[in-house]
Design a protein around this nucleic acid. Structure first.
Lengths: 219, 219
DNA sequence: ACAAAAGTGTCATGGCGTGACACTTGTCGT
DNA sequence: ACGACAAGTGTCACGCCATGACACTTTTGT
């Protein structure tokens, strides 16, 4: 150990604007997430205590809470990044696309990326989350709450795109909820029936198709 | 005190199959709900402790947890009864009605009943819940979790009605989610924009109309 | 009147989440 | 290179939620 000198001076490829402190912080954070998921998949979500997670990384549990607001939070890191990705994808869609199409493509695109393990999304970890939620109401609640926040952003996006005021027009609300729920229905189906409907992205795509066509026709 | 004799013997109008104990229990439960909502509306959900609620009814906080699984639980009593009512209404819909129509009418019907203050649903209390959820993520999470459970029941109902296997067919999932979300979108809109879209039942009705027609047409 | 059952209170425990304060470590100016 | 300053961390302490165990009171059925 002890590469005392390097780093200082003008040397250092230094493509990292953030300093060493920042990197360390990031490493701790990552380590916490890793440790958490390891323990979760070993013992389950509820049976894992914050202290255990912290101990595994050798920090105090107090520190854990400086990185994550709650135990659910660490398990849902994944979802937050996913949301960020969806919103980013959304803003790249051409403006003349019908809203629902834009939403569909953005969401399906991200689902594919997840499956491919891109963007730091670990499919295995995703699977772990789904099964954890099955027997941990707490976590499920957290997940749903997160979805709710995401929805507020969607409403904003959709309203702007449709050029309407969400206080006047109900459609943005319905479309946003439908989007959230479309995704939810897909994960839900996968939770309950494994991969019976194909991959996540396929399931999401089918779900959107049903929503676009309208539910009035069913029987 | 001490009406020692009455009640015993063959006397007693006794139109209540359940005994005195049962009634007492019910009264305690109701008192807890009342006290809880009073305190909630005074101080907010998070700022109210279980102990305060219990003290207000003069029972131990331990007892509180014998009636309700959690603090959210007491606040969501309302929703549980609502769900029960929806499922009941659902089973009364004629079998030849399209599923979506049946769902729509059942849900709208219950929403109307709520507004009318029937079934022990207090509109004022409902309003209190909505505003509480605005600044209490915990409660919101609980509410969403409840919705999730309700959804599982819906999937069952819909699958049976469509005569399909939910493990094979994605539609029951989507329709159930849509129903949940139809309702959710409506309450959501009311939370965010007050009564701008009319009453709850009207809003729900409009939401369902949009969903039935399909979202593909928008712009 | 009495025994079983149900409800409740008290005590004790454990995990979650947060505030306060002191200490270590990275950062930046000179 | 040295020192001031800020950021991150550990420790201690606290309050709340939720649950288990056990003893005590009330209700119920006979």
């Amino acid at each position: 150990m002890t590469a005392t000198a390097p780093e200082t001076g003008t040397t250092g490829p230094g493509p990292q604007p953030p300093g060493r402190r920042e990197r360390k912080k990031q490493r701790t954070r990552d380590a916490l997430v890793d440790a958490a998921f390891t323990l979760f998949s070993e013992k389950g979500f509820d049976a894992t205590t914050v202290e255990e997670i912290a101990d595994a990384v050798d920090v105090s549990s107090r520190t854990f809470f400086r990185y994550f607001a709650s135990k659910e939070d660490v398990a849902l890191t994944f979802q937050e990044e996913q949301t960020r990705a969806v919103l980013a994808a959304l803003s790249e869609r051409p403006a003349d696309e019908p809203v629902m199409t834009a939403l569909r493509r953005a969401v399906v695109g991200i689902a594919r990326a997840c499956e491919a393990g891109e963007l730091g999304f670990d499919p295995e970890r995703f699977q772990c989350m789904l099964s954890m939620m099955n027997d941990s109401p707490t976590l499920m609640a957290g997940s749903l709450e997160h979805a709710q926040k995401k929805q507020a952003l969607l409403i904003e996006f959709i309203s702007e795109r449709l050029g309407v005021d969400p206080a006047d027009d109900l459609r943005p609300h319905v479309i946003a909820v439908a989007t959230t729920c479309g995704f939810q229905a897909a994960t839900d189906a996968m939770r309950r029936h494994g991969g019976a409907f194909g991959s996540l992205s396929e399931t999401v795509d089918k779900t959107f198709a049903i929503l676009e066509n309208g539910l009035g026709r069913e029987r």
